[in-house]
Write a protein that binds this DNA or RNA. Structure first.
Lengths: 232, 232
DNA sequence: GCGAAACCTCAGGGTTTTCTCAGCGGCCCG
DNA sequence: CGGGCCGCTGAGAAAACCCTGAGGTTTCGC
């Protein structure tokens, strides 16, 4: 791997677009502006790339096959609530705009756009985010999750989780104390179009691993949803 | 009659523009969207207003006499680095855009724009800031309800409620002091097509848990309905 | 390709919650 | 003072809600 030898921790940006030409253009412009740019041509690749690369910002084309930009954003939002997302789209439809912001986007740029404007908006988003970087370890009682190392521990013992279980717990942890309604969780962790049973099964599994014997952290709030709460 | 969605402890927005008509339009739209809106017609007034009102977000027209939008923004940035700023402008000049972001703006919208888009962008900025976080605690005397945590307490003690009881109390609390007629409550909590008996039973249950021994909060208004009132 | 792990669906069963109903008691007005 | 309306409350049946295990399919690693 011959990537940058700069000692300076470069800001990483992931650009996702299935249109090769646009992808190149955007990537070049941002690279020229001094960012470390990674690219992905589809949603799945993008999600994997985020997991691996840990970019500081993601630029998403809305109009893609498979998981479109919105779906990718929702998925990201579940696991990385603080990761800024900027949408690119050809349609300037107000409906799209709404969908974009509702799936957790931070900015929205319609094609054709000036590369300069993109650069400026990226700058504004990054400036904001810089100030509020929390530690990567989340906690609730004696349960901890180190997201960088992908390590979950309860009372000193490591807990092994499947990907879905991990994402679910991550979502619960990043909203500790709050009661989360089922559709909300489903949307964040699965990305909609699933029934409640999926959630219930996952919760059941998760409890077996997390709340085994020990005091309960995962609480059912009948009629509403679930909540992660410390014991006292 | 609009049957309001949620009564958030309102988020405050300051709108600054020297064009009266536009100012009104924007202010109205945001008020309708549920924000507490303050207005200012010039930069100086705006700066004073920020000091006094502590808004959660500022919308600035760029093109104003005296201190223009950019100058106001720079001024604000010095004292309130975390206060999000959104620019409005007639010129879509790239130079302006640059100046805007460089003076600390967080977003930039060129006229003409759709009010809906403004609303969405405002939402996105607030979400980031965490300001959209409604403290979400309602109160009546020594009774409190934290809606996010689904936690109801009276005089320091936790009270456990069933879903219906919770929804009912939530509705009463968000209309504290008012006399609510039965059909109104039924529609809000049950969604009609039920008889009065259902309400009466629920009220009865609720009283047992909320007004146990202590001074009455839930009052019957004979011939009309019910009201939640703090003791004198 | 093969096997294992992960995932979704589905149905059975235990609990809690909610609705209905009917009797009781108090308030208002004649 | 008494009748009639209105609202309160308890009990039981019905419904809703949630948990869990099993089975079949897809995904992933080797």
């Amino acid at each position: 791997m011959v990537t940058a030898m700069t000692a300076e921790p470069q800001t990483k940006i992931l650009v996702v677009d299935d249109e090769q030409m646009l992808l190149d253009m955007v990537a070049d412009a941002l690279t020229f502006a001094g960012f470390a740019v990674t690219v992905a041509a589809d949603g799945i690749t993008a999600l994997n790339s985020v997991r691996g690369e840990r970019p500081d910002l993601v630029i998403l084309d809305v109009n893609m096959p498979e998981p479109d930009g919105f779906q990718v954003a929702r998925s990201l939002r579940a696991t990385y609530p603080d990761l800024p997302v900027l949408f690119l789209t050809a349609r300037s439809d107000i409906e799209d705009l709404r969908t974009g912001f509702e799936s957790g986007g931070d900015d929205y740029l319609t094609k054709p756009f000036r590369l300069e404007e993109l650069r400026l908006r990226v700058g504004a988003l990054l400036r904001r985010r810089g100030s509020a970087e929390p530690s990567a370890v989340m906690r609730c009682g004696d349960l901890t999750m180190n997201d960088r190392q992908h390590l979950v521990m309860r009372d000193g013992e490591e807990i092994e989780l499947s990907p879905t279980e991990y994402r679910l717990l991550h979502y619960l942890l990043s909203n500790t104390g709050q009661v989360l309604e089922r559709p909300q969780i489903l949307e964040a962790v699965w990305g909609y179009e699933y029934g409640d049973s999926v959630l219930e099964t996952a919760i059941s599994q998760l409890r077996k691993k997390v709340d085994a014997g020990r005091p309960k952290l995962i609480h059912t709030v009948r009629g509403f949803g679930y909540a992660l709460r410390p014991p006292p």
